[in-house]
């Protein structure tokens, strides 16, 4: 649809582009600055010469971090928590959501309200801590995995998606005498791959980013995820194993800055890798569920 743009229209367009370009810089610059700094020369970092692009090229902090056992262990802990939470979320919530999507389920409304209440009202930090403690999960890996699985938000998204599958697709299976479980596992699940991928990825990324649960429930350094280590490195300026590495590294403030930047980058990169999938599925998932309200 072509139509003439008057002076007002052109000014409007310019305004929009300028505003969005500025916004783009605000979002992009901090990320680029961290990345550049993580691979810049120590001296340049110390003197604050890194503004946008790397000054010199120096990867020693990455080498240093990869050689640190606690750091590598934290990375794999985080990966383990993410994978477990993604899989368990789907394994527990998908069948639940499917049952709730079936109109013939007796007590469906009651159960839905029962779960909705948990979303509207959270009892708070201390009672949750006590339940985790009572369940014997305190200071175990499970404390980071199990208590966070039960999000009604995911159930809503899954249920809406399951409910949108036309009954005709299931009808013939029912006529052949298939059980609900067979219909769910053979027909519904294969048709729901996009929403399952969305929920799985979301749960996984949330686990990767979780700082609250390990802060509350873990004392043992062996179980620490990367988020806790990141906080120690950046805010408390302590590496999990301070003694290792050549002494001259610690003499240089630049090295510390570089290492801090590098840990931030290492925390972001896995998310960046799955981001294209997250973005694509999320837009689809929204179309399916959230906006319908």
């Amino acid at each position: 649809m072509k139509h003439k743009m008057g002076f007002g229209g052109i000014a409007f367009s310019i305004g929009v582009y300028v505003a969005l370009t500025l916004a783009l810089i605000v979002w992009l610059y901090p990320l680029l600055f961290i990345l550049s700094s993580s691979m810049s020369d120590w001296l340049a970092l110390e003197q604050g010469k890194v503004r946008l692009l790397p000054v010199g090229l120096e990867f020693s902090s990455y080498q240093f971090i990869v050689a640190q056992k606690p750091m590598v262990r934290a990375f794999f802990n985080s990966a383990f928590y993410s994978a477990s939470r993604a899989l368990l979320t789907l394994a527990l919530l998908a069948p639940l959501a499917y049952a709730l999507s079936e109109r013939k389920l007796r007590g469906r409304n009651f159960l839905t309200v029962l779960l909705l209440i948990t979303m509207l009202f959270g009892a708070g930090m201390i009672p949750m801590y006590m339940v985790v403690r009572w369940a014997g999960l305190l200071n175990t890996r499970w404390a980071i995995i199990i208590p966070q699985l039960f999000s009604f938000w995911y159930v809503i998204l899954l249920r809406t998606s399951f409910a949108s599958i036309p009954y005709e697709l299931k009808e013939s299976a029912y006529i052949d005498g298939a059980s609900n479980w067979t219909v769910f596992s053979r027909i519904v699940l294969p048709l729901s791959k996009p929403i399952l991928a969305t929920i799985g990825l979301f749960a996984g990324v949330r686990a990767w980013n979780d700082f609250f649960s390990p802060l509350l429930y873990l004392q043992d350094k062996e179980f620490w995820p990367l988020t806790i280590v990141l906080r120690n490195v950046v805010m408390l300026a302590t590496f999990p194993q301070g003694e290792a590495g050549p002494a001259d590294m610690y003499q240089s403030a630049g090295f510390w800055i570089q290492a801090q930047m590098a840990v931030i980058v290492i925390n972001i990169v896995p998310v960046l890798i799955v981001y294209p999938f997250l973005q694509r599925y999320f837009t689809r998932g929204i179309m399916l569920g959230a906006v319908k309200g």
Binding site: P95, L96, M130, I146, N180, W181
Partner: peptide
């Protein structure tokens, strides 16, 4: 529909424990 109830049971148990447990607390 007994199998539907079996399907929702594990998830429901989790919501009761970690959603309603703290409310009792």
């Amino acid at each position: 529909d007994y199998d539907l109830y079996l399907m929702l049971l594990p998830g429901l148990a989790g919501f009761l424990l970690f959603g309603y447990g703290p409310m009792y607390g």
